[in-house]
Structures are given as structure tokens and as C-alpha cells.
């Protein structure tokens, strides 16, 4: 202890180090692999901090090696984890009071809950909503569609990644209490509610199924099967099909198989005239 207090100066990450980590975190998934998922990406992002905190030698090597372990979460919500990890590494380098297992435990403890928030919030809500919005405009041939999607989704992403990296770093290991306090559970629930609600709307409005078979002909007015279904409940077939596919996926059926089956159905329907 004495040597640490008298012999060594306190090392701290600079703003530049954090900026560098932020920049690197935009390439986190580059080496995604089936053995340890985002492990090397994690190490790649931590390198500026490790370089600052540990002089070449055993400690630096150990630091590099401990961030090569299995890691996987939502790529945009890794930011707070990087922040906390940096803060803990800084403390470890300065006081030696934080041990390796604490850092590993924190990473593993945070990645599950954060994936639980990130997947419904970003993949389940933000992206499909903005993409559907953009695609709707794009189908009229307007460049506004792609631009709207690209600009908005990236504004959300970069803001989150920038802010949460610093938030994690300033809060340090305190953040774990934040998570334990149930805030994460609330966020996950809230995100899932918005996601499910919007998905319900998308199923109804943004799916195109049409059965043009003529059902009735009264006074020259034709009514197709689709017209009748729509008068009962618009989007009914889409809902049934979505629930059926959801069930198939839960049974472990490969999504690509389902996709090809639906295209097969489309061709069959076109050929026999029951879909249009």
C-alpha cells in the first residue's frame, strides 16, 4: 500500500481516452464470433483505457486477457458497461482494491439486463417504427424516406452511446445498484409495452394480404372474400398468420423455411387465383 501511495502517481483516463473508446465502440461487433460473441470487440474498445492505466508488463497483459472473455449484449447499450468497466479498471490500477472477478461479475451481471432493455427498445420498437415510416415514404420514390430513417435512427444511437459511456464512467460501480433497484425492470417493461403496441398496429396496417375471390354478386355489385373479412375486422388474416408464425418460431422452426413457405404460398395463390 505504501509504495502505491508514495511511489506512484494516480492515473486517470483523459477525455481523449473516453472519446477514443466511444469511437471504437462503433465497431464493437466487427469480430463477432460463435465461440465468444463480442469478446475481442470488447477488448478492442477497452484498449485505450488499458494503455493509459497499465504500463507494459504483466498487469497490462492480464487486463487485455480478461477482456477477451465471452461477452454479448445489445451493441448500443454496451456503452454504460464500457463506462463502468473503465471506472473499475481505473480504481484497480490506482488502489488495487478491485479484483478481476469483480470486473468480470459486473460485466456478466449487466449484459443480460441491458440486452433485455435494448432488444425491445431498439430492435423491437425504434428501428421497425422508423423503418416502416421511412419505407412508406420511400415506396412513393421520395428520398425523404431513406433519409428520415437513417438520420433519426443514428441520432438515437449516437446519443445513447455517447451519453451512457460517460454516465457509466462517472457513476462507476454505483450503477449496479441502479440496475438492482428495479429501474431496469421498469424500463424493460415499458419498452416492451410500446413495442408490442406498435407491433399490433403494424400487423394490422402494414401487412398486405388480399383474397380477391368473388363471394357474392348482388345487383352487379361484387364483393370479394377480402371485403367481407375487412368488414368483420380489418387485418384479421395478418393477425392469425402472425400468431401462427410466432408459434412456429417458438417450436424452433427455421425462419428462412417459413419465409420460403410464404413465398411458395404467394406463388400458389397467384397461380390458382386465391391471392392477389
Amino acid at each position: 500500500m505504501q509504495t502505491i501511495q508514495t511511489g506512484q502517481k494516480k492515473v486517470a483516463l483523459t477525455n481523449k481516452d473516453l472519446n477514443s473508446m466511444f469511437f471504437r465502440s462503433l465497431f464493437l461487433l466487427g469480430s463477432f464470433n460463435f465461440e465468444r460473441a463480442q469478446n475481442m470487440g470488447f477488448c478492442f474498445v477497452m484498449i485505450p483505457a488499458i494503455k493509459r492505466l497499465y504500463k507494459p508488463g504483466k498487469e497490462r497483459n492480464e487486463a487485455l486477457a480478461r477482456h477477451m472473455e465471452w461477452f454479448n449484449t445489445h451493441p448500443w447499450l454496451t456503452a454504460p458497461i464500457f463506462g463502468v468497466t473503465a471506472a473499475m479498471e481505473e480504481e484497480k490500477a490506482n488502489t488495487g482494491k478491485v479484483d478481476e472477478t469483480a470486473i468480470a461479475a459486473m460485466k456478466i451481471g449487466l449484459m443480460g439486463p441491458l440486452a433485455g432493455v435494448g432488444d425491445p427498445l431498439f430492435w423491437g420498437t425504434s428501428r421497425p417504427v422508423l423503418a416502416a415510416l421511412g419505407a412508406g415514404i420511400a415506396m412513393t420514390g421520395s428520398i425523404i424516406g431513406p433519409l428520415l430513417f437513417f438520420v433519426l435512427i443514428n441520432a438515437i444511437r449516437l446519443t445513447c452511446k455517447w451519453y451512457f459511456l460517460r454516465y457509466g464512467y462517472t457513476k462507476g460501480s454505483e450503477i449496479i445498484q441502479d440496475m438492482a433497484g428495479g429501474r431496469i425492470k421498469k424500463l424493460t417493461e415499458g419498452a416492451s409495452i410500446v413495442g408490442l403496441f406498435v407491433m399490433g398496429a403494424l400487423v394490422s396496417k402494414w401487412t398486405t394480404i388480399n383474397i380477391p375471390i368473388v363471394a357474392t354478386k348482388i345487383n352487379g355489385k361484387t364483393q370479394t372474400v377480402q371485403d367481407i373479412l375487412d368488414s368483420v375486422m380489418p387485418g384479421m388474416l395478418a393477425l392469425i398468420l402472425t400468431l401462427f408464425v410466432s408459434w412456429l418460431l417458438k417450436k424452433g422452426v427455421n425462419p428462412l423455411l417459413i419465409i420460403f413457405a410464404i413465398f411458395g404460398l404467394g406463388i400458389l395463390g397467384k397461380w390458382l387465383g386465391f391471392l392477389g
Binding site: 423491437g124 413495442g195 407491433m199 408464425v245 418460431l249 425462419p255 419465409i259 410464404i262
Partner: peptide, 11 residues
């Protein structure tokens, strides 16, 4: 129709 596969994944 295919879009339902994506919806089902999200759900």
C-alpha cells in the same frame, strides 16, 4: 405477407 415473420420475431 412475409413481413409477419419479422413481426413474429419481435413479438
Amino acid at each position: 405477407i412475409i413481413v409477419v415473420v419479422g413481426y413474429a420475431m419481435v413479438i
